[in-house]
Design a protein around this nucleic acid. Structure first.
Length: 566
RNA sequence: GCCCCCGUAGCUCAGUUGGAUAGAGCACCGGUUUCCUAAACCGGGUGUCGCAGGUUCGAAUCCUGCCGGGGGCGCCA
């Protein structure tokens, strides 16, 4: 709808410019739905942008533009100059009504577009190392990444969801040592670090070990299964494996419960197995930007315009995480993705430029690699902050939060805010069962109501209409036209949310649709869907179906269920 | 000290590549109504868009400086 209008205005502008002897292209004008209804269905700022260039008053140009535009091939009912030189445009009502038909014909696909054209897009997110259960911050990231993936799919991209984890470095070793220490403590062969040493019992627990209760549980289950059998094991290997497997199981269960499913889990160690890191090091050497210094191997990244140099290989021979990270991103492109998106927490912000620069250094196009950073999550209840510290007593995991509020509310609340805003998760509101107060339920209930109406219709022997049976001329009330207008931009909203990687726009949009639909249904003193006039009833049932398609598709893009009954 | 994000109504937050009189939900008050499941509708009103400059037809939006909150600045991941 807007697309066609854009084209018509563009053509009119070119004509206008030609008349003025200006052969350059028209300016980048905007056609948008203005805030105020009496400013038309759309407003265009082209005349304002041209005023200086043509040396004429903007309102003059606007008037000329309107004359050139005419009715834009039957699209326009009215156009007028407004304010400093806007052109306000009113669409022919029949055009709005045909937008409703388009939704009914598209059905569940009413939000889809094809800009991705089947190209391959990798979204990497969560990527938490298996050292403990997922935090609420990981939970936000899981929802954010998954919703972006869903949006990209809806715009025609072929999306692969990937989870990358480090299993080769020091962190995993410390994890194994932590479990081993707890195991020995439980056998009475070691002293916990917070207790006074007993006779001859050493403290084994590492100073930077993992303190959580889940470590105790893993140790206990090993003890139950193996007895004292592992006490003489010299290294942490068995413990590390056991811990990693157990924790990863938990993480996957959590993700599963959140409705987040990865296509690929890839590990740092596989990069070593396939010699990617080795190859990378050789190729980086060839760039001449590596340098031995103090026994370590440095990347002279400051010469690439970055704030400092970085160590790739430590003086003890171990790699920093940056090195395999670069190798990993190179692999992504080798695997043929047109575009790659990394979703990460704000604490990774400073690292991205190094990876990006290294990718460029290797001759790859860094603009195909995107990063999206999200800020942290805090929990509050009734305006009071809930303390989140790593101390076990007050640490709330994604699992625990999920158990409190359920997956639909979890997802809605996590996606409602833009990524770069702090997310204040209001537990009190999230646990609110009243659909009028909890926005997640408000949207879902709006959907359920379309089925409620269908149930009523069936009880009265009224059939739901096919698209062809919907005579939209019968829809004349202001609130009906407003609904149609809102529904008709769904595809654009989805496309924009996908393109800007900003799923929160979709959440807001659905809230707005529900905010029109719920009162419409509720205020049935003035307009009942199921009435005496069969044509009007069919038209309103058509509207009901269109609302259902949009809400169902929208909820699905957020990974939420669309219940038929609540 | 340097870098990044944020600062919008009492609270939580939106604000479409710079657009017209800055919005939503919650919370508060009054009136109407009882209906396709839980109530809805109408009205009441609040903003130095953190502060100060600048850019221009026009700034919450862009630039500079400052203030406040968060994150980062490791041969940790």
């Amino acid at each position: 709808m807007r697309e066609r209008l854009l084209q018509a205005i563009d053509a009119a502008l070119r004509e206008l410019l030609r008349d003025a002897g200006d052969s350059a292209a028209p300016p980048a004008f905007v056609v948008e739905a203005p805030r105020q209804n009496d400013h038309g269905d759309f407003a265009c700022n082209a005349a304002l942008l041209l005023a200086r260039r043509l040396g004429r008053p903007a309102r003059d140009i606007a008037a000329t533009l309107i004359a050139k535009l005419g009715d834009a091939g039957g699209l326009l009912a009215r156009a007028e100059v407004a304010g400093p030189g806007f052109v306000n445009l009113w669409l022919e009502i029949s055009r709005w009504r045909s937008a409703l038909h388009e939704i009914l014909l598209a059905g569940p696909d009413c939000g889809r577009s094809e800009t991705g054209a089947g190209r391959a897009f990798q979204v990497e997110f969560v990527s938490a190392n298996p050292t403990g259960p997922l935090s609420v911050g990981h939970g936000r990231q899981a929802i954010l990444g998954d919703c972006i993936a869903r949006l990209l799919e809806a715009t025609g991209w072929r999306v692969l969801r990937e989870y990358y984890f480090n299993d080769a470095g020091r962190q995993m070793r410390v994890l194994g040592e932590s479990v081993r220490a707890r195991y020995l403590e439980q056998l009475g062969r070691a002293t916990p670090p917070d207790q006074k040493a007993r006779e001859g019992l050493p403290v084994v627990f590492p100073s930077d070990g993992y303190q959580g209760d889940y470590i105790l549980d893993i140790a206990a289950s090993i003890r139950e299964r193996e007895g004292e059998g592992w006490a003489r094991e010299p290294g942490d290997g068995g413990f590390r494996q056991e811990a990693t497997a157990r924790i990863f199981d938990g993480i996957r269960r959590t993700l599963d419960a959140l409705g987040v499913h990865f296509d690929v889990y890839s590990s740092e160690s596989s990069l070593y197995d396939e010699r990617c890191v080795e190859t990378l090091l050789a190729d980086l050497r060839a760039t001449g930007l590596l340098e031995e210094r103090d026994g370590a191997l440095w990347l002279r990244s400051s010469e690439l315009g970055l704030p400092r140099d970085r160590v790739l290989v430590k003086s003890d021979g171990e790699h920093t995480y940056l090195l395999p990270d670069i190798a990993y991103h190179r692999e992504k492109f080798r695997r043929g993705f047109e575009r790659v998106l990394d979703v990460q927490g704000a604490d990774h912000k400073d690292q991205a430029p190094f990876v990006k620069a290294a990718v460029g250094l290797l001759g790859l196009d860094p603009t195909r690699l995107e990063f999206l950073f999200h800020e942290f999550v805090t929990l509050s209840t009734g305006g009071r902050k809930v303390k989140q510290s790593t101390r076990r007593a007050t640490f709330i995991t994604a699992d625990e939060l999920l158990a409190e509020v359920g997956v639909d509310v979890f997802r809605y609340f996590m996606i409602e805010r833009r990524a770069q805003s702090h997310l204040d998760f209001d537990l009190e509101l999230a646990k609110e069962r009243d659909w009028t107060r909890n926005p997640a339920y408000y949207v879902q209930y709006a959907h359920a109501r379309t089925h409620g109406i269908e149930r009523q219709a069936r009880a009265r022997g009224v059939m739901m209409p096919t698209p062809e049976q919907v005579e939209t001329e019968a829809l004349a009330l202001a609130e009906e036209l407003e609904l149609i207008r809102k529904l008709s931009v769904f595809r654009e909203v989805v496309a924009r949310a996908a393109e800007t990687r900003e799923p929160h726009h979709l959440a807001y949009y659905l809230r707005e649709v529900a905010g029109l639909w719920n009162p419409y249904v509720q205020d049935s003193a003035r307009h009942r869907v199921l009435g005496v006039d069969p044509a009007l009833t069919r038209a309103r049932l058509g509207l009901t179906l269109a609302v259902r398609f949009v809400l169902a598709a929208g909820l699905d893009l957020l990974g939420m269920s669309a219940p038929e009954q609540m």
